[in-house]
Design a protein around this nucleic acid. Structure first.
Length: 420
RNA sequence: GUGGUCGUAGCUCAAUGGUAGAGCCCCAGAUUGUGGUUCUGGUUGUUGCGGGUUCGAGUCCCGUCGGCCACCCCA
């Protein structure tokens, strides 16, 4: 393994990729705040037991884990929910309910990488804690949809498939299945469609026929799911959702509504997923604190791929990135004798919030204008023989005017508004 | 973790078993202080790495590392 390359599944973020990532973060953060969520963060490294206990075997087998120098079994976090549950259990009395928290962070798993699945990725996590009412589920799904819409994705591009684990546990109860087999059966339903039908039949036994019938029939008779649809219809978001009782999700801790987001074309992996986990906080705190909770996560990798291949979303992103990258003013130092005067001015402009760049070493004027162009400067200020006047050039129109250097700021205010 | 496939300059790719190349990018010039154009010149490689076959290997064989695809799994 060469030290010249990244570890498999890890990425370098060169300026271009970093800009993409930051654009994604900015949209995530902006929409979460629009919904009144507040940002928090937890540690990247946790005791391995935190995940062994509650997440289910699927995740634990893929943990990036090792022993630290204190002989502790530790793991890079594969997901945020167990951390959240722990934090909330410890601090819940400090906050009014419901908590509406979001977080943007990096997560890890030790798995052979493939397109859309690396060993490291960034996720938006949005959680509501302390509200058992379905209104919270509706709010959360609406938030998830609005996050996608912030990227220019429409109901033609993405779909939220929604299900309810309670729908299945009620069903198992009716079928007189012992409760200790429910998790296992849910896993079988989760895999339905991904493995041969005979294997599913074999695993389900006498339950096979009724399960198939239910999957085919959908959740039409579920009052809860119908109320959820109605809630989203009221917000004008119904076109984004579909009821699909085949959605169960791999994690063991979900208890109620669960959902996953996919691209309509079915080209990519799941873009986001989440659901209700009313028992997890109680489980992790050994019953000390019991709070209903729900949340979803959305990763940057699949989302980035989808944006890239959805023309209108891609254009919107490129436009946002381009305008964010631009500087406001480029200082052309045409005569080195004026460098000190130029630097004094640069300092003032920067203090006022302008994005300003200039050549660090003596450079031909033509090259300096070229740099101004490439950096996206709206104006260039030329320091040279005109001193104590400064030549102001509008880069878009190529128009030039002279201004006394002590009145430069007033002249600029008319031409250059601050980049945000 | 299993199987398939690929690996040549920073990038995209050429090269019948016979001297490793092109375009782009980057850097520098085209005599005086004005822009994504043009022209000229320049840097860049242990052909992923290690073995083997051969007079001779980028090319064939084996191994290994890495990428991609499928399976597994999917936060």
């Amino acid at each position: 393994m060469s030290t010249m390359q990244t570890l498999p599944g890890f990425r370098d973020f060169l300026p271009e990729q970093c800009a993409v990532r930051n654009h994604i973060f900015a949209c995530w953060r902006e929409v979460a705040r629009r919904y009144g969520f507040v940002e928090w963060e937890g540690p990247v490294l946790e005791p391995t037991d935190l995940y062994k206990k509650k997440s289910g075997a699927e995740i634990v087998e893929q943990l990036f884990h090792f022993k630290d120098k204190g002989d502790r079994e530790v793991a890079l976090r594969p997901e945020l929910t167990p951390t959240l549950a722990r934090v909330v259990a410890a601090h819940e009395r400090e906050f009014k309910k419901p908590l509406k928290w979001f977080s943007i962070g990096q997560f890890f798993r030790y798995e052979k990488q493939q397109r859309g699945r690396l060993r490291e990725h960034f996720q938006l996590n949005c959680d509501i804690i302390g509200e058992a009412d379905l209104a919270a589920d509706i709010e959360l799904v609406a938030l998830c949809i609005d996050v996608l819409r912030a990227f220019g994705l429409s109901e033609k591009d993405v779909v939220v498939r929604i299900s309810d684990r309670e729908f299945w546990t009620d069903f198992f109860r009716e079928q007189n299945m012992p409760a200790d087999r429910w998790d296992e059966l849910l896993q079988v339903i989760d895999k339905f469609g991904r493995e041969p039908r005979e294997r599913t039949v074999e695993k389900l036994g006498k339950l096979a026929d009724p399960v198939f019938a239910t999957l085919k029939g959908g959740g039409g008779n579920s009052d809860k799911l119908n109320r959820l649809i109605a809630g989203l219809r009221e917000r004008g978001l119904a076109d984004f959702i579909e009821i699909d009782v085949g959605i169960v999700r791999g994690l063991a801790y979900y208890t109620g509504i669960v959902f996953e987001v996919f691209d309509r074309a079915g080209k990519f992996r799941a873009i986001a997923g989440g659901g209700r986990y009313d028992n997890l906080i109680g489980l992790l705190s050994d019953g000390a604190v019991s709070l209903p909770a729900l949340g979803f996560a959305m990763g940057d990798v699949v989302l980035g791929e989808l944006i890239n291949e959805t023309p209108h979303a891609r254009e919107a992103m490129e436009k946002a990135i381009a305008s964010n990258r631009k500087i406001d003013i480029y200082i052309v130092i045409a005569k080195e004798e004026r460098r000190a005067d130029a630097l004094a001015q640069i300092q003032q402009l920067r203090e006022r919030g302008y994005r300003v760049d200039y050549p660090l070493t003596p450079t031909k004027v033509a090259r300096q204008f070229q740099a101004a162009e490439e950096l996206g400067a709206r104006v260039a200020l030329l320091y040279g023989d005109e001193w104590p006047q400064v030549k102001i050039k509008n880069m878009a129109t190529a128009e030039q005017e002279l201004a006394p250097q002590d009145r430069l700021l007033a002249h600029l205010q008319a031409q250059v508004s601050l980049s945000s």
